[in-house]
Simulated assay, not measured.
Amino acid sequence: MAEASDAVRAEVESVVQWASKAEDDYVATRQSNWLRVVAELPWGQPPPARRTPTAAALGALDAAHGGHASVKSILSDRAAAAAHMERHGDGEHRLRPLLLVGPPGTGKTTLARAMAAALSRPCEVVSVPMAAVDECYLAGADRIWSGAEPGAIIRTVRRLGTARLLLVLDEIDKVGTGNWRGSSPTAWLLELLGSTTWTDRYLGVPFPTSAMSFVATANSLAPIPAPLLDRCEVVEVPGLTPASGCRWRAPTSGPG
Rank of each mutant, 00 (worst) to 15 (best):
252 T>Q: 13
169 L>K: 00
171 E>A: 11
179 N>M: 08
227 P>V: 02
85 M>R: 08
152 A>G: 00
221 L>G: 07
214 F>D: 01
120 S>K: 10
220 S>G: 02
162 T>M: 11
182 G>W: 12
235 V>N: 01
238 P>C: 10
158 R>C: 08
83 A>M: 04
219 N>G: 14
148 A>H: 00
162 T>D: 11
211 A>G: 03
147 G>R: 04
98 L>K: 02
244 S>D: 15
156 T>Q: 07
129 P>T: 03
151 G>A: 08
210 S>L: 09
115 M>L: 10
14 S>A: 15
89 G>N: 02
218 A>T: 06
16 V>N: 06
26 Y>R: 14
10 A>E: 15
191 E>S: 12
97 P>V: 01
206 P>I: 10
43 W>Y: 09
121 R>N: 06
131 A>M: 15
14 S>F: 06
8 V>W: 08
225 P>G: 08
241 T>M: 05
119 L>A: 02
82 A>F: 01
198 W>P: 01
90 D>V: 10
47 P>M: 02
106 T>W: 05
230 D>Q: 11
211 A>I: 03
241 T>E: 07
129 P>I: 01
100 L>M: 00
82 A>E: 01
87 R>Q: 12
149 E>T: 13
213 S>M: 09
189 L>R: 04
207 F>G: 00
100 L>S: 00
192 L>F: 08
214 F>H: 03
176 G>F: 05
35 L>S: 02
155 R>M: 10
92 E>D: 08
23 E>S: 14
186 T>Q: 15
174 K>E: 09
86 E>H: 12
22 A>W: 01
37 V>K: 01
194 G>Y: 09
199 T>C: 13
34 W>G: 00
3 E>I: 01
80 A>D: 00
135 E>M: 13
245 G>E: 09
195 S>Y: 06
141 A>N: 07
240 L>Y: 10
185 P>E: 03
47 P>Y: 03
68 H>N: 15
20 S>H: 04
88 H>E: 11
222 A>K: 14
97 P>S: 09
182 G>I: 07
226 A>S: 10
52 T>E: 14
223 P>G: 09
151 G>D: 07
162 T>A: 11
206 P>Q: 11
164 R>E: 14
144 I>T: 13
72 K>E: 05
57 A>K: 03
90 D>Q: 07
201 R>D: 14
56 A>H: 08
138 L>G: 02
119 L>G: 00
157 V>S: 08
186 T>K: 09
77 D>I: 10
182 G>M: 11
228 L>Y: 03
146 S>F: 07
105 G>Q: 00
104 P>F: 11
172 I>D: 03
255 P>T: 11
4 A>G: 15
120 S>A: 13
256 G>T: 06
207 F>A: 07
91 G>A: 05
188 W>R: 14
252 T>D: 08
69 A>D: 15
211 A>S: 15
162 T>H: 12
121 R>H: 10
105 G>D: 06
207 F>V: 06
87 R>V: 03
